[in-house]
Design a binder for these strands. Sequence first.
DNA 1: CGGTAATGTTCAGCCTGCTGAGCATTGTGG
DNA 2: CCACAATGCTCAGCAGGCTGAACATTACCG
Lengths: 141, 141
Amino acid sequence: MADDSDLHTWATGRLLSTAARFVEHAWDAHLAQWGLNHAGCAVLFLLQDGPCSQRRLAGPLHVQDQTMSRVVERLERRGYVTRARSAADRRRVLVTATDAGRAALREATAGDRADAIVADALPEAATAELRGHLVTLVQRL
Amino acid sequence: MADDSDLHTWATGRLLSTAARFVEHAWDAHLAQWGLNHAGCAVLFLLQDGPCSQRRLAGPLHVQDQTMSRVVERLERRGYVTRARSAADRRRVLVTATDAGRAALREATAGDRADAIVADALPEAATAELRGHLVTLVQRL
DNA sequence: CGGTAATGTTCAGCCTGCTGAGCATTGTGG
DNA sequence: CCACAATGCTCAGCAGGCTGAACATTACCG
């Protein structure tokens, strides 16, 4: 309790990181059932629209190419994704979700479990406000 | 722009992590001038009240002991902190800020640079709302 | 056509986080 | 007093981030 009383004196950045870590941790714990985590889950989500190069996966997620390379490698090890050099442009690596990958994504995200984590701790109106401010923050940075 | 238009469809967790990463990155870039980062900076801040065991540093920051161990080790390498086994309880490691550490903290945090990062992207009222929701989230998780 | 720039991945290395396990010290109950 | 639990820290290893640098492929321009 002594900790939380000081919470208001923290820099907003630290507050943000801590909250993000907590939510991410809870989400990862749920995804662990399928050998997934938040990063891999986001990639599988993007792959629903069809195969995609690694760079085109990294962009929307605002992550470096090098980071994406390893996330995809891990997904490949788990058998949720296949990688193949593109025939049209041999620099590109085309990432494709496997049936297992699609199934895992479907099961893991069934019932909006992702947002339930936040929804359990925050009223709906507050969540909407929070999301709005976060979107603005991301867009401006 | 195509990326940001999809931002509203993201899970709140991903939104939170991305925003946190962005703010942290900007903050780290500023702290790099003194060979610091967000983690070390928070530790130096806590040490203002005097020497402290590593566990008592990890608690308020909601971080594992193992993580704190390495953050403090890094601060020690930079000369911002000294470590010594406690005489009263030889299990404890007493961490003490050096003059250099106190000076670095003072310079790095001068002018509220930490919150300026968020303040530049978000109006004051929105920041207050955001902070309120984050505090609630952390307390409930 | 050929040199140079741009593109897309990967490798090496660092940092913060986590888990799991080990180790020394201290506290405690029989 | 001594075995056993609790405490405080460290080591090993993994994962997601980042930077910097290398590499092959492709695009472009003189």
